[in-house]
Design a binder for these strands. Structure first.
Length: 485
RNA sequence: GGCUCGUUGGUCAAGAGGUUAAGACGCCGCCCUCUCACGGCGGAAUCAUGGGUUCGAUUCCCGUACGAGCUGCCA
């Protein structure tokens, strides 16, 4: 049988990386076996609905490559794929009625006030268990309330004895006492289904074979199983994904600043790197390779190799991985993407393409560029102490000497290409009988004003050109003269 | 509180009843080098805990601790 998985987000804002990973795994499980991946919008919560959130979902799936085979825009006969539209089609009402007829569900007319009397406070947490009060209503009483227009919900009628077991592909069998099974609400008083109900109905109707979802649903899954059984439907395979946490092992929240895919893109990460990284959070391939693009993941993904324990989102490692993608990227593509960041840092007419290549193997995320290349634009203020370098055996004194001796030579040099400049400096080094660094360090310091740069002295001078290079060296000389005296 | 799930270095993790317990990020050192980065080499660092079972358990079982999730007319 063809595998069918779905991603069923709630349109409530940005896409959480945990949800994105769930979508990724659902996609990979289906695609690895040549199956279908579908998108279903679970907009049954009127209050949390956020305008534009569906667009975010679509855009994110498109940008990450997790393109659904079916969804709101591509109805392959299982639609509609938006739950609010399914509500209008009367789908959930119909199935809820079927459960009522079977005695597996019942209408509950309890007021909020009465429900409030059922709640209790335990260790700061509010807990409420419904007492099946409305289950004992007679048909006449129900008729009466219905006619009077008393609002009601429909609840699942769970047994209070025995146990219920469900099977998860990763976690194995999970068994709970039926007395733990609350009579959860299936249809809300506004007529919309709850996640608990809509999810089961739709997964069945849409022919979902593997239900991939977050681990937070594991404890309610027995209740979903009872629903499947009540309908006489085949239970799908369940694959619950482990949680993603922050560095404090708490659920990754907005406060972390990088809880959503959008956050990460804004911070300068590449979609491929994000996908690669989250794929490895809770799953590992055979072998030692870690860099995989989506098609490669499809090839090798095996959900049996998924983990069960929560994983910390390691921002540091994501940065590293993003850098790996830069290194593997072809220079033109990188240049195109880096350009806006380069322009932000450099307003002068310099060879940005060359600078782009300098930076490509040195940054981890795009915003790193600014700090790295700003000195090309304007020489930063710096302290002459920077001319002192133990390993290079340089001092302010020695630097002054080198720069002074080099200045006339560089003034005479016409060819300011990297190779030519390098040859000039090498000549001087040889003639002086010192190590390269003894000369290169002061020159680079003078033309950059920085401790570290994304290129060597002569490469920098090539970019800056003769005039600017000389002016910076002269400035260095005058600073050093002052410092030495 | 109850229920459910989880626990291999700081982090992601492989692994298996007997291994020198992989690899990666990060960290440290060395090499390369016109600084840094890249690249190369090396290092420190892990089986939560107490009982069993076993010739032998980090691996299997039970308890404990810790963590997380659920306990919503949210999903």
């Amino acid at each position: 049988m063809k595998i069918r998985t779905r991603y069923a987000p709630s349109p409530t804002g940005r896409m959480h990386v945990g949800n994105l990973r769930t979508a990724l795994y659902a996609y990979l499980i289906a695609k690895h076996e040549g199956g279908d991946f579908l998108l279903r919008i679970e907009d049954t919560d009127q209050e949390r609905y956020v305008e534009g959130a569906v667009d975010i979902i679509n855009r994110t799936l498109r940008d990450t490559g997790l393109v659904p085979d079916e969804g709101p825009d591509q109805d392959k006969g299982y639609g509609p794929y938006v739950q609010s539209e399914r509500v209008k089609a009367g789908i959930y009402k119909k199935y809820a009625q079927e459960l009522i007829d079977k005695g597996e569900a019942y209408r509950c007319f309890c007021s909020k006030e009465r429900l409030a009397t059922l709640t209790q406070e335990i260790e700061g947490k509010t807990i409420s268990v419904y007492d099946k009060h409305c289950l004992s209503l007679t048909p006449e009483e129900i008729r009466e309330k219905l006619d009077a227009g008393v609002p009601y919900v429909i609840r699942q009628n769970n047994p209070q004895t025995g146990t219920t077991t469900f099977h998860d592909e990763l976690y194995g069998d999970v068994t709970v006492d039926n007395k733990e099974l609350d009579d959860m609400i299936l249809i809300k008083s506004d007529g919309y289904p709850t996640y608990n109900f809509a999810n089961v109905v739709d997964d069945h109707l849409m022919g979902i074979t593997h239900v991939v979802r977050g681990n937070e649903y594991i404890s309610s899954s027995p209740k979903y199983n009872r629903l499947y059984e009540a309908f006489g439907w085949e239970v799908p395979k369940y694959i619950h994904c482990p949680l993603i946490t922050d560095e404090n092992h708490q659920k990754l929240s907005k406060r972390s600043g990088h809880s959503s895919y959008e956050d990460l893109i804004e911070q300068g990460f590449l979609p491929e790197a994000v996908v690669n990284f989250i794929a490895l959070l809770g799953w590992s391939p055979e072998g030692e390779r870690e860099i995989f693009r989506l098609p490669e993941l499809v090839e090798i993904f095996d959900y049996h190799r998924m983990g069960k324990s929560a994983a910390v989102f390691d921002y540091q490692k994501l940065r590293w991985m993003n850098g790996e993608y830069f290194k593997a990227m072809d220079p033109d593509t990188f240049y195109g993407m880096a350009l806006p960041y380069l322009k932000e840092a450099i307003t002068k007419d310099l060879d940005l393409r060359k600078i782009s290549e300098m930076v490509r193997t040195r940054i981890e995320i795009f915003p790193d560029i600014k700090e790295m290349v700003g000195f090309f634009d304007t020489l930063p203020e710096y302290d002459t102490a920077m001319y002192r370098h133990k390993k290079m055996k340089t001092t302010e004194q020695s630097s002054l000497e080198v720069l002074q001796e080099l200045l006339p030579v560089l003034e005479e040099t016409e060819d300011y290409s990297n190779d030519a400049l390098f040859a000039v400096l090498k000549d001087y080094v040889a003639q002086k009988g010192v190590k390269n660094g003894y000369v290169m360090w002061p020159v680079r310091t003078a033309v950059s004003g920085k401790q570290t740069t994304p290129a060597g002295a002569t490469e920098i001078m090539e970019i800056l050109g003769k005039e600017e290079s000389l002016s910076r060296i002269r400035h260095g000389i005058s600073m050093l003269r002052e410092a030495v005296n």
